[in-house]
Design a protein around this nucleic acid. Structure first.
Lengths: 236, 236
DNA sequence: ATCTGAAGTCTGGTATATCAGATCCCACAC
DNA sequence: GTGTGGGATCTGATATACCAGACTTCAGAT
């Protein structure tokens, strides 16, 4: 699992830490605020005060400002010059994030179907098989992890770094919500069928089919999440 | 064109300035750097130095940092904590930006076809008609402006604020490149046909058709841009 | 009572200072 | 020659200071 430098005799070598994993204050603030916004802990339109945030986090305003700039670019807050920043997230916004993710994931699935190699295809099928097992044994934790691996693997197979990054930013639910989803056996089964079909389409190189199925999967499961997070309603 | 407050007797009233139009140093830096990166004035992987940028712009590092944070979230630079930021833009990245835009614009076209009202549909048709006129008279400036209005109008008709914002960030060519494109009569004609077909599909409410046509339009015209900006090559 | 505008306050934008991780260089040991 | 490590230096991360635009309040004028 952990990559190991070659030729380190006698003693175990330690894996190099990815610089990206180092935590800075601004990243912490960014992640924390992002999670809070997506969890609905702010009302849309609500003003946030830089100094007050700085005080709450116990830091200066500099990293706060940087985090807010990131959230602004993500579209979760709006900055009015010299006036302040206001939260921009509600059910409509969440719906659109799902649509964006559907559009992008389906595009990436299309490319993955065209570009995936033989060994990666075997791996993807293997992940789908593990999902089948975890589904029948109702292993929610494994399902959450496998789900992540599944989409991850498709992203890698598509060889699209930019698109993969973009998709990450369209995620608004976390592991705890996923766990709730996987409680429902019908939902588990439905998701399994979709994942299996997507894997098959990608591995057999049917790009258009993979694209359609991925889109439907993301939209459908997204609606399930929406209902849980915001109560119910329907449109799209 | 300019909205006018009601009931201002005797003298012309001035439209309120949208606070978003106010320029701050960080916005200026952000836009300038973004344009420079997208114009290929940095090599991908190149390191940029905050102090040096601050000096070049004649400002302090604070707005520079904020602008870099925005670019980071846009995916145009990568920040390695405590090490600096490096440029991340090359032809592959540009291709993916086009694909992202294609995915998102087609999604928004789909929604616009479902949600557009009668009057907005008439307007869209009118824009398409103006495009036909501008095409036959080879009026490049009008075409550029109309093209903008066309997509703008579709965005509004879809009633998707988030998606529209997201799409804006996938734009990597500017008016000057567009002008080059519109020099070519064949390209002009092709674009007109596509725009006309998209408008028709949206106005008649054929969401799936609108989606397909928009996607093809964005990918095809994107490839034209790519060839101009990066020389030629093909894949996708 | 309503409107106007001057003064005070709040708060974001920018500049500057300081701290600490990362990198580079070179002397010194093997 | 190779490599190890101490220290100088560079530079990003954070804290702090200061400025100016925006909002609030309220006295005075009409």
């Amino acid at each position: 699992m952990i990559p190991e430098p070659t030729g380190s005799p006698r003693s175990e070598a330690f894996a190099k830490i990815d610089p990206k994993f180092q935590m800075t204050v601004r990243d912490h603030v960014h992640r924390t605020l992002r999670a809070a916004i997506l969890a609905g802990r702010f009302a849309t339109g609500e003003k946030v005060n830089e100094r007050s945030l700085a005080e709450q986090f116990g830091v200066s305003t500099t990293p706060i400002k940087e985090a807010l700039r990131q959230l602004e670019t993500e579209g979760l807050v709006e900055a009015l010059p010299r006036r302040g920043v206001i939260i921009r997230f509600d059910m409509g916004w969440a719906e659109e994030m799902i649509l964006a993710r559907a559009a992008l994931e389906s595009m990436i699935a299309h490319l993955a179907a065209k570009r995936i190699g033989k060994p990666a295809g075997v791996e993807l099928t293997a992940i789908a098989d593990l999902m089948a097992k975890a589904t029948s044994s109702a292993d929610a934790d494994s399902l959450i992890s496998l789900n992540e691996q599944f989409h991850e693997h498709i992203h890698r197979s598509s060889r699209c770094g930019y698109l993969a990054k973009l998709i990450e930013r369209q995620q608004f639910y976390d592991a705890s919500i996923r766990r709730v989803i996987h409680m429902d056996p019908a939902e588990r089964q439905k998701a399994l069928e979709e994942h299996t079909a997507i894997a098959k389409a990608i591995v057999t190189g049917d790009a258009d089919l993979a694209e359609r199925q991925m889109r439907n999967h993301v939209v459908r499961s997204g609606e399930t999440y929406l209902n849980i997070v915001f109560g119910n309603k329907k449109d799209i």
